[in-house]
Lab assay of single mutants.
Amino acid sequence: VTVDIKGMEYHFDNPEEAKKFAERMAKELGGELKVENGTLKVE
């Protein structure tokens, strides 16, 4: 699973970990979490 945090890509084997990480980063950065082509994106 790929997580894109404002252009920086992180790769996770575990989808649950990827989702938790993306949600935490969205909250910390005040960004919006989206799913695009199987990639979790925070913008």
Rank of each mutant, 00 (worst) to 15 (best):
V1E: 02
V1I: 12
V1D: 02
V1T: 12
V1Y: 14
T2Q: 05
T2I: 14
T2V: 13
T2E: 02
T2W: 11
T2F: 09
T2S: 07
V3M: 02
V3C: 07
V3W: 01
V3Q: 01
V3L: 04
V3T: 01
V3A: 02
D4N: 15
D4R: 13
D4Q: 15
D4F: 15
D4G: 07
D4V: 15
D4P: 01
D4H: 15
D4L: 15
D4M: 15
I5W: 08
I5P: 00
I5F: 06
I5Q: 01
I5L: 06
I5N: 01
I5K: 01
K6P: 02
K6M: 15
G7H: 03
G7P: 02
G7D: 03
G7A: 01
G7Y: 03
G7E: 02
G7T: 02
G7N: 03
M8S: 08
M8P: 01
M8T: 13
E9Q: 15
E9S: 13
E9I: 15
E9F: 14
E9M: 15
E9L: 15
E9T: 14
Y10M: 03
Y10N: 01
Y10E: 00
Y10L: 03
Y10W: 08
Y10A: 02
H11C: 11
H11T: 09
H11P: 02
F12L: 01
F12H: 01
F12C: 06
F12G: 00
F12D: 00
F12M: 01
D13T: 12
D13Q: 10
D13C: 10
D13Y: 06
D13N: 11
D13V: 10
N14Q: 05
N14Y: 05
N14G: 06
N14E: 06
N14R: 05
N14D: 14
N14W: 03
N14T: 12
P15G: 07
P15E: 12
P15K: 08
P15R: 09
P15H: 12
P15F: 15
E16A: 10
E16T: 10
E16D: 12
E16S: 07
E16Y: 09
E17V: 06
E17M: 07
E17D: 12
E17H: 06
A18C: 02
A18S: 00
A18W: 02
A18K: 00
A18T: 00
A18V: 00
A18P: 00
A18R: 00
A18N: 00
A18G: 08
A18Y: 02
K19A: 10
K19F: 14
K19D: 03
K19Y: 15
K19T: 10
K19Q: 13
K19R: 14
K19S: 07
K19L: 15
K19E: 08
K20M: 10
K20T: 09
K20W: 07
K20Y: 07
K20L: 12
K20P: 00
F21E: 02
F21I: 01
F21P: 00
F21Y: 05
F21C: 05
F21D: 01
F21M: 01
F21T: 00
A22I: 08
A22R: 02
A22Q: 02
A22N: 00
A22S: 02
A22D: 01
A22T: 02
A22K: 02
A22G: 04
A22F: 05
A22V: 06
E23I: 09
E23H: 03
E23V: 06
E23N: 03
R24I: 12
R24P: 02
R24W: 14
R24Q: 14
R24V: 10
R24C: 14
M25P: 02
M25Y: 08
M25G: 02
M25V: 10
A26I: 08
A26T: 06
A26V: 09
A26E: 08
A26H: 06
A26P: 01
K27P: 01
K27R: 10
K27T: 10
K27I: 13
K27W: 13
E28C: 13
L29V: 05
L29G: 04
L29K: 02
L29N: 06
G30I: 05
G30K: 10
G30H: 10
G30E: 09
G30L: 07
G30P: 03
G30T: 04
G30W: 06
G30R: 08
G31P: 03
G31F: 11
G31R: 02
G31A: 13
G31S: 07
G31H: 07
G31E: 06
E32L: 13
E32C: 08
E32N: 13
E32I: 15
E32S: 14
E32V: 15
E32T: 15
L33K: 02
L33P: 03
L33H: 03
L33A: 04
L33F: 08
K34T: 11
K34A: 07
K34L: 11
K34V: 13
K34M: 09
K34E: 04
V35Q: 09
V35P: 04
V35S: 09
V35L: 12
V35C: 13
V35M: 12
E36I: 13
E36L: 12
E36N: 08
E36R: 03
E36Y: 11
E36M: 10
E36T: 11
N37K: 07
N37D: 09
N37Y: 06
N37F: 08
N37I: 05
G38R: 01
G38Q: 06
G38I: 05
G38M: 05
G38Y: 02
G38L: 05
G38P: 04
T39I: 15
T39E: 06
T39H: 12
T39W: 08
T39Y: 11
T39G: 07
T39M: 13
L40R: 00
L40G: 04
L40Y: 14
L40W: 14
L40S: 03
L40T: 05
K41Q: 06
K41F: 11
K41D: 04
K41A: 04
K41C: 06
K41S: 08
K41N: 04
K41T: 10
V42R: 00
V42E: 03
V42H: 03
V42W: 06
V42G: 03
V42I: 12
V42C: 06
V42F: 05
V42D: 04
E43M: 13
E43T: 13
E43G: 10
E43P: 05
E43C: 13
E43Q: 12
